[in-house]
Amino acid sequence: MLIALSVKNKIGFIDGSIAQPDSSDPVLLNSWHRNNNIVISWILNSVSKEISASIIFAESAALIWLDLKDRFQQSNGPRIFQLRRELINLAQEQLSVSHYFTKLKGLWDELSNFRPNCTCGKCTCGGVKELTAHHQMEYVMAFLMGLNDTYAQIRGQLLLLDPLPPINKVFSLISQEERQRTIGPQSTNNSQTMAFAVKGDSKRKNVATTAMKQSRGSRRDNNNRPFCTECHIHGHTVDTCYKIHGYPPGYQRAKSIE
């Protein structure tokens, strides 16, 4: 609601800085009533019907805002305790680096709103700058502590730096490491697949080459051996063919397969 009112330049109607003018200037008074009623209508539309029934008769938006603040504003202690406990228990686990950092940033930014800040602009000792640097160092530490142990190497390298890089730079480096790990195994598998393919092709080529050489050698050997024109078998000629001249005593013929 504060963001919406600030955009419309109506914060002064709820914090009382734009007070109701006197009746001496009717034009200004009418303008104030018109803007005050606009803010009241926005507030009524933003709360439940049960709450709006209890504030509808208020005279100004400032009174309505003060009433709601007194009734519903909670103390900061329980919320700070809850935020710190969530930060301590937050870990990456199965989350991606981006998702883990987003959750951490939401908790850290909300917790930072409860920290007191020096806004006077008159500090000359440099203490505010040192406090801001220490706050950022704690931010980086909280992020690195919640990372998985698989990032132990790059986490150790970052902790050796003095001073530590800003949180956005640390997040960028960890994200690059995560993307590099996603790309690395895939390229390795592709290289192994290509190596196996080349090795398989070479093996098949060697087998084919060996078979061709054996076939050529067999043909050359058969061409050099004698050939019988009667039984069409290599190893003898027609002059010594058993089928023509008879088998020697004690020769055992091979049994024919029926």
Rank of each mutant, 00 (worst) to 15 (best):
S202P: 05
L107N: 06
P116G: 04
Q252K: 15
K69H: 08
H236A: 04
G127Q: 08
N117L: 13
I55V: 12
D221V: 08
F196I: 07
P78A: 06
L131R: 14
D149R: 03
M212E: 13
S52D: 01
Q176M: 11
Q192K: 12
D109V: 05
Q92N: 04
L2V: 08
K105T: 14
Y247L: 09
Y247C: 00
D15G: 11
L66W: 01
R85Y: 04
H245E: 02
N45F: 01
E138Q: 15
S202A: 15
M1Y: 00
I38E: 13
S112Q: 08
D25Y: 06
T132R: 13
T188M: 13
E178G: 03
P249H: 08
R225C: 02
N37Q: 10
F13I: 02
F13V: 02
A91Q: 09
P248L: 01
I18S: 05
F13S: 02
L90T: 03
Y251H: 11
I183S: 07
I64L: 02
I56N: 03
C118K: 04
K205N: 13
D25S: 14
R216C: 09
P116V: 05
L160N: 07
D201C: 14
Q214D: 10
A195P: 04
S218V: 10
I56L: 06
Q157K: 10
R225H: 03
S54A: 11
P166W: 02
I40M: 13
Q153N: 11
R34F: 10
Q73E: 12
R204Q: 15
W65A: 05
T210C: 09
L95E: 12
Q136W: 01
I80R: 15
E110S: 01
A142H: 05
K169D: 15
N45Q: 10
E110Q: 06
C228Y: 01
G156V: 00
N45E: 03
F143Y: 07
C125K: 15
F114S: 04
C228N: 03
S31C: 07
Q20R: 13
P78S: 05
C241Y: 01
V198T: 14
R115M: 11
H236G: 01
A211C: 09
G146Y: 03
Y247W: 10
S75I: 04
K203W: 12
Q214H: 09
L107R: 04
P249I: 09
M212I: 08
Q20T: 09
E258W: 07
G121L: 05
M137G: 13
A208M: 07
K129S: 13
Q74S: 15
S17I: 04
L147F: 01
V198P: 00
K49Q: 09
Q20W: 06
S172V: 05
K243V: 14
K169R: 09
K255W: 00
Q176V: 08
